[in-house]
Computed example of a mutant assay.
Amino acid sequence: MTQQRRTVTVIGTGTIGLGWITLFLGYGMQVRVNSRRPEAPEIVRRGIELSAGHLPDGTGDPETFDSLLSFEPDLERAVADAHVIVENVPEDLELKRALFARIGKAAPAEALILSSTSTFTPDDLGTLMADPSRLVVGHPFNPPHVVPLVEIVAGEATDRAAVAEAVAFYREAGRTPVVLRRPITAFAANRLQSALLRESVHLIREGVVTVQELDEIVTESIGLRWATIGPFLAFHLGGGEGGLRQWLSTLGAGLEQGWELLGRPPMDEETIATLIAQADDAYGDRTYSALVRARDTRQTAVLRALEAAAGQEQAA
């Protein structure tokens, strides 16, 4: 089936849903939006206007998106003939379970059913479905139309063929799917992000740096490094000619001792008030839309630069 004939039903018009809608339209897919919000068409069109300029190179002209976009507030009608269904409702397990039970009854038997959840496994989500074998988690990193990663998570009841189809689908949409070898709470990327966030909060709470200074530290050091290589390759190179083996036996020998120094900050009222006040001071003079455009412009520039660098490496 070609992308142009593929019908994707996107459920939900929050931040993630809007990113998916824009991305799928960019890749020429027929996108049907399911939302109970009466203002959904206006929300979606504003989201496309905000995001379309940051789609990958080679995607479609936003002027053509209207011909590919439709809205269906009735869930059963929205999924009745869909090839792919992408759920993006709030992280409420009972809400999602009830939703997938309805989807399972109304969608075609061969439809690929995907959840953007950052919390639950397919086994959690599919307990009320007669057949949960086509349900796969495809967890994106925000914003999904810019950041390539999608974590693919299967459950005990998941058909391996559905996992392969999910990988192929996200690749068609220009994403980088990674299949987790086993399900784990919060998956992989969010656990890494959470570990860094915990120490970030600790450093701010202890008065070492401010919110704005912490952001600058990350973007001007490890953020720049991690945009090009992952932590293991970074330390492998840090070991010189001896690689990771050398690094672990010298600079990395005190890792456990260093881990003991990491903070466990309480998220009490004082901590929350400090974070909010400093974030307002740092970023409160710019609108949400302006901050989003700046973020997406920079991230898109990084991705394009990396693509160009990869092309130069291949040509060398």
Rank of each mutant, 00 (worst) to 15 (best):
P62D: 12
E313R: 14
E241P: 05
R298W: 10
L214N: 12
L197A: 14
L303T: 02
N34E: 01
A168L: 09
A164K: 08
P144A: 02
G26K: 02
R304W: 03
D285F: 05
I21W: 04
T228I: 11
L214R: 10
A234N: 09
Q278I: 11
E270S: 14
A189R: 02
L18R: 08
I21K: 02
A305S: 13
R225E: 09
G58F: 10
Q30T: 03
R175Q: 15
R298S: 13
E260M: 07
D285Y: 04
R97A: 06
I43S: 02
V33Q: 00
E216C: 06
L149H: 01
A310S: 13
S194F: 15
H83N: 06
T210L: 05
E76H: 10
R37I: 00
I113Y: 05
H83T: 01
G243W: 09
E172R: 09
E42V: 04
G242R: 01
G284A: 12
E156K: 13
G17A: 07
G53D: 08
E260W: 01
V218W: 05
V136A: 01
V201N: 09
R36Y: 00
T127R: 14
E165M: 03
D159M: 03
E220M: 10
L291T: 09
A189M: 12
R160Q: 15
F141L: 10
W259F: 14
A111K: 02
L50Y: 02
R45K: 12
P231T: 07
I229L: 07
A310M: 10
T185R: 15
A310V: 07
L261F: 05
E110W: 07
H83F: 00
R295I: 07
V89E: 05
E110M: 03
F141Y: 11
L251E: 09
R225F: 08
R205P: 00
A40M: 01
L125Y: 07
P177Q: 12
T15L: 15
Q4C: 05
H54N: 14
T127P: 00
E206I: 02
I85D: 03
A227L: 03
V147H: 08
D92R: 14
M129C: 09
G284H: 09
A80P: 01
P90R: 06
L197V: 14
L196W: 13
L95K: 09
L135R: 06
G26W: 02
A310T: 10
V179S: 07
R304N: 14
N34V: 00
P231N: 02
T121H: 05
I43H: 01
G138Q: 00
